[in-house]
Simulated assay, not measured.
Amino acid sequence: MVRLIMWVALIAAAVWFIKRLINPPAPRTKPEPPEIAATPMVRCAHCGVHLPRDRALSQEQQWYCSETHRLQGPAARDH
């Protein structure tokens, strides 16, 4: 009985190996991650925080992070 099981296993392994040689498996390719469009960032003229341009407020070619900072205007910076 053990001999019969060994012969069946050997034949099954040979068939599997031959099928694999004839039709090799397709190489696995990693799916490309979707391209994420980067949102342009701007700097608040008052506090210097960077934020996406679509969330910023603009006034006279200056960008602000909030209405309060827009009303206060640009900060005086010593560089």
Rank of each mutant, 00 (worst) to 15 (best):
E67N: 09
D78W: 12
P34T: 11
T68L: 02
C47K: 00
L21Y: 11
N23S: 08
H79L: 13
I22M: 08
C65D: 02
H50C: 08
C44T: 00
C44K: 01
W63P: 02
I11W: 05
L57M: 05
A75S: 04
W63F: 07
R43C: 06
R55C: 05
A76E: 08
P27W: 03
P34H: 06
A38K: 11
L57F: 10
T29P: 07
K19H: 13
E67R: 06
L21N: 10
H79I: 11
P52G: 03
R70W: 03
W16V: 04
P74C: 04
L21G: 08
A76N: 08
Q61N: 15
A9C: 13
R77V: 06
T29S: 12
L71N: 15
P40M: 08
K19Q: 14
V49I: 10
A45V: 00
Q61F: 07
M1S: 13
L51T: 05
P52E: 01
R77L: 10
S58I: 07
C47W: 01
P33K: 09
P40Y: 07
H46F: 05
W7F: 13
H69T: 03
N23A: 14
M41K: 08
T29M: 13
N23Y: 10
W63G: 03
L4I: 13
W16I: 09
C47S: 01
C65L: 00
H79D: 15
L4R: 15
H69W: 05
A26F: 06
C44I: 01
E32N: 09
E32G: 07
L71M: 14
L21M: 13
Q62T: 03
P33R: 10
G73T: 03
I18V: 11
I22E: 07
